[in-house]
């Protein structure tokens, strides 16, 4: 949690928003995944968002689902996950957010999962198919083991619920840019601005926007609309897939892409076109 506070404070001081690249753990393979994350870090990631691969990811689009399938096929499991996170922790101290599905956690048991995740170096947990109503027991375990809480809000979330969710969140609020699932979009939804404005009225916690954000232009727009962080997933995972298909190392491409996305989070770049 402190890791988050420091990062969001620092990027703000520098006149930037946090750049939060996403990858599915174990994709394209257990070690190659750690290399992917290293490329993100070298490319300027402020926070990492790591998806735990699940066979039936109902909140994800085809790109992230294929990534999960590659990981599962490569034999990725709980112990591989925790050891990958430990390897990442050996070279970076930036916050690691975990995005998982409920079954992954219940399979191991709430307490055991949270304990192992926190010990490996995960900072926060967002469960894609577990709204606050269903999270009571899990949140107890998260508190006990010091895992930060992240929940999603969308343009459909009513005001009162927004307030409740923001109260429950202690790391950042995950704002989805539009209804639907993760994926690559060509244009950014116009509703982001309204949703962010509504959120700012009820909370001062960091707001990170995700879903469909694919280009530096999207990143600039979201930052201009008032986001404290920008999550880019499918557009990067797509590069991992392309490289995996060709059998080449995606690191160079990811580093380059990450750099251009990170650069777009700077207010100076937005205001003066630098």
């Amino acid at each position: 949690m402190n890791r988050y506070k420091n990062v969001f404070d620092n990027v703000k001081k520098r006149g930037e928003a946090a750049f939060i690249p996403f990858a599915v753990a174990g994709d394209p393979g257990p070690d190659a995944f750690v290399d992917v994350v290293a490329a993100y870090v070298k490319g300027g990631a402020d926070v990492l968002e790591i998806g735990y691969p699940f066979s039936d990811p109902i909140a994800d689009g085809p790109v992230n689902q294929r990534a999960a399938q590659r990981a599962i096929k490569a034999g990725f499991d709980h112990s591989a996950f925790f050891s990958a996170i430990k390897k990442i922790r050996a070279f970076t101290d930036i916050p690691i957010g975990l995005l998982a599905y409920a079954n992954t956690i219940s399979h191991l048991g709430n307490d055991d999962f949270c304990k192992k995740a926190a010990k490996a170096g995960v900072d926060s947990l967002l469960v894609a198919d577990m709204p606050p109503e269903e999270s009571g027991e899990l949140m107890k375990s998260m508190r006990k083991h010091g895992l930060g809480r992240v929940f999603i809000v969308s343009e459909f979330t009513p005001d009162e619920r927004m307030r409740d969710i923001c109260r429950n969140v202690d790391s950042f609020v995950y704002v989805v840019s539009r209804p639907g699932i993760t994926g690559i979009d060509t244009t950014l939804s116009a509703s982001v601005k309204t949703t962010l404005a509504r959120l700012k009225k009820v909370t001062d916690k960091p707001l990170a926007v995700g879903f469909g954000i694919s280009t530096p232009e999207h990143v600039s727009e979201v930052v201009k609309a008032g986001a404290d962080g920008v999550i880019v997933g499918s557009a990067l995972v797509n590069e991992i897939e392309k490289a995996a298909v060709r059998g080449v190392d995606p690191a160079a491409v990811l580093r380059k892409k990450a750099r251009s996305l990170k650069a777009a989070t700077s207010f100076a770049q937005i205001h003066f076109g630098l």
């Binding site: 109902i58 909140a59 409920a102 894609a128 198919d129 577990m130 709204p131 109503e133 269903e134 929940f151 999603i152 809000v153 969308s154 459909f156 979330t157 009513p158 989805v176 209804p179 639907g180």
Partner: peptide, 9 residues
């Protein structure tokens, strides 16, 4: 109700 937030409404 183990649903993504976007489905809750």
């Amino acid at each position: 109700m183990f649903a993504p937030e976007t489905l809750m409404p």
